[in-house]
Design a protein around this nucleic acid. Structure first.
Length: 291
DNA sequence: GGTAGACCTGGACGC
DNA sequence: GCGTCCAGGTCTACC
């Protein structure tokens, strides 16, 4: 069956797909032109479905081989709308960016939307697996989590959804360390999964626009394994751009672009983008570093 | 508030 | 093939 969703213009699915490396992490898949997203999703009903998302006039189409109940369809619509940030309005940022040559193409290419996972739980876990490792390591860890603990697609048992908190909560730290090569992150992942599964921590509530960014950051930092970089990365994913995710790559890029390659720290990065105010994280994210 | 050391893995390198 | 070194953020203890 097919579902159609509208997006606030300008919109480009390819721009969302290429917004960062998330599409390379299981269970996301894309085609060689980065024009579609395939993913496997475990729904609240317990059904596991495969979704194919493509761009169409004014929005996206979603294809599911399995027919969906009304409740399943509503959940798919809500999750895809969130994942692709279909309702976001970037007109204020585009007006500011038009005066900056390194950002002037943002509006023309409909850049700004950052690909999200269906749940913030998944985004947090994936962000933790990006810390203190290489991108190759991140991809291995996430693939192993999906293959070991994700629910299988009935029509193709080799394809799995990202594990729910409940599934991960039933694991033990040693197994996560051994099977998924999470290393010292294993107890952090387990603690988060168990807190969410037990209902002690409602991470999905952090998607709320009512929470001030400083409070939201405080709550993210309270999660074991989430430090300054991870919190800023998650804030950008959540559509809050007041902080810059400063990692070693950021230091290198900003140093080369603004400080003649000198050794710099987080404060120097923040000083460059501070004039962008509530948009500084997005200005940093979309900056054209190609020179 | 700032700093040092430990955490863990994989890749690069030298032997 | 083996051992060593290093890169990558966060946590904890300490000053």
């Amino acid at each position: 069956m097919e579902i159609f969703l509208d997006a606030r213009p300008p919109f480009s699915l390819t721009a969302v797909i290429c917004s960062h490396g998330w599409v390379q992490l299981a269970p996301f898949e894309t085609d060689e032109n980065h024009s579609t997203i395939e993913t496997v999703l475990e729904l609240g009903s317990g059904r596991v479905v495969e979704l194919l998302i493509w761009e169409r006039a004014e929005g996206v189409g979603i294809f599911s081989e399995l027919p969906l109940t009304n409740a399943d369809q509503a959940e798919v619509e809500q999750k895809v709308t969130w994942m692709l940030d279909l309702e976001q309005d970037f007109s204020t940022f585009y007006a500011l960016a038009a005066n900056e040559p390194k950002l002037a193409q943002a509006a023309n290419h409909a850049r700004g939307r950052i690909l999200r996972c269906p749940t913030l739980f998944e985004d947090i876990l994936k962000t933790i697996t990006t810390t203190n490792t290489t991108w190759g390591g991140t991809k291995r860890m996430v693939r192993a989590l999906v293959e070991t603990y994700g629910a299988a697609l009935p029509s193709d048992l080799s394809r799995r959804a990202f594990p729910t908190p409940q599934r991960l909560a039933a694991a033990d730290a040693e197994a996560l360390r051994r099977e998924c090569k999470l290393g010292y992150r294993a107890p952090y992942v387990l603690e988060l999964a168990q807190s969410v599964a037990a209902g002690d921590l409602d991470v999905e509530a952090l998607k709320s626009k009512d929470l001030p960014t400083t409070e939201l950051r405080k709550r993210l930092l309270a999660i074991k394994g989430v430090g300054d970089y991870a919190a800023a990365n998650l804030l950008v994913i959540l559509g809050r751009y007041d902080y810059i995710p400063v990692d070693s790559w950021a230091l290198k890029m900003v140093s080369n672009e603004f400080y003649h390659g000198e050794a710099i720290g987080r404060k120097e990065v923040e000083a460059i983008f501070q004039p962008w105010g509530v948009w500084q994280g997005l200005a940093f994210w979309l900056w054209d570093w190609s020179d």
